[in-house]
Lab assay of single mutants.
Amino acid sequence: TGYYDVLGVKPDASDNELKKAYRKMALKFHPDKNPDGAEQFKQISQAYEVLSDEKKRQIYDQ
């Protein structure tokens, strides 16, 4: 599964769309709200870390 799929956004998503999707998913799977969501929360955080950084995103998109 790709990072875009993890966040539920298209590859041409804007920074604002990425942030909005990340916040929505992070709230849904945060371990405090969803004890079984810890692994998914890590994936969401990693996806956002890469896609929100312009240089990392360019490398990922290659």
Rank of each mutant, 00 (worst) to 15 (best):
5 D>R: 11
60 Y>M: 03
22 Y>D: 00
18 L>R: 00
36 D>M: 09
37 G>K: 09
51 L>S: 00
5 D>K: 11
6 V>R: 06
29 F>Q: 03
62 Q>H: 11
61 D>L: 06
2 G>S: 15
34 N>A: 04
7 L>M: 08
41 F>P: 00
29 F>A: 03
6 V>F: 04
44 I>F: 04
14 S>E: 05
57 R>E: 02
60 Y>D: 01
29 F>K: 00
14 S>N: 09
30 H>Q: 07
44 I>K: 00
1 T>H: 13
6 V>W: 07
59 I>E: 14
54 E>I: 14
19 K>H: 09
41 F>R: 03
21 A>N: 01
17 E>D: 11
1 T>G: 12
5 D>Q: 12
26 A>T: 08
57 R>D: 01
10 K>V: 04
51 L>R: 01
8 G>N: 05
1 T>C: 15
36 D>W: 10
55 K>C: 13
35 P>N: 05
13 A>Y: 03
8 G>H: 04
35 P>M: 06
28 K>A: 10
6 V>D: 03
51 L>I: 04
13 A>T: 04
11 P>E: 04
18 L>I: 15
8 G>L: 02
20 K>M: 14
52 S>N: 05
11 P>N: 08
22 Y>V: 00
9 V>T: 04
58 Q>Y: 12
33 K>P: 01
21 A>I: 03
23 R>F: 12
13 A>P: 00
1 T>A: 11
53 D>V: 08
18 L>F: 00
14 S>A: 03
42 K>M: 09
38 A>P: 04
14 S>Q: 03
62 Q>D: 07
48 Y>F: 10
25 M>Q: 07
62 Q>A: 13
56 K>L: 13
8 G>D: 05
22 Y>W: 07
17 E>T: 06
6 V>Q: 04
44 I>M: 00
40 Q>P: 04
44 I>W: 02
33 K>I: 14
27 L>C: 14
40 Q>R: 13
34 N>S: 08
3 Y>Q: 02
30 H>W: 06
39 E>K: 09
37 G>S: 10
11 P>L: 06
47 A>L: 00
22 Y>T: 00
2 G>P: 08
52 S>G: 08
20 K>T: 11
37 G>M: 11
13 A>N: 01
62 Q>F: 08
43 Q>H: 08
45 S>M: 14
52 S>E: 04
50 V>G: 02
45 S>G: 05
22 Y>M: 06
51 L>F: 02
22 Y>Q: 00
29 F>G: 01
30 H>Y: 03
25 M>V: 03
19 K>C: 14
43 Q>S: 08
25 M>E: 04
49 E>S: 11
47 A>F: 04
38 A>Y: 11
53 D>E: 05
47 A>M: 00
53 D>Q: 07
59 I>A: 13
53 D>M: 06
19 K>G: 06
16 N>P: 06
39 E>W: 10
36 D>H: 11
44 I>V: 08
9 V>Y: 01
57 R>F: 03
60 Y>E: 02
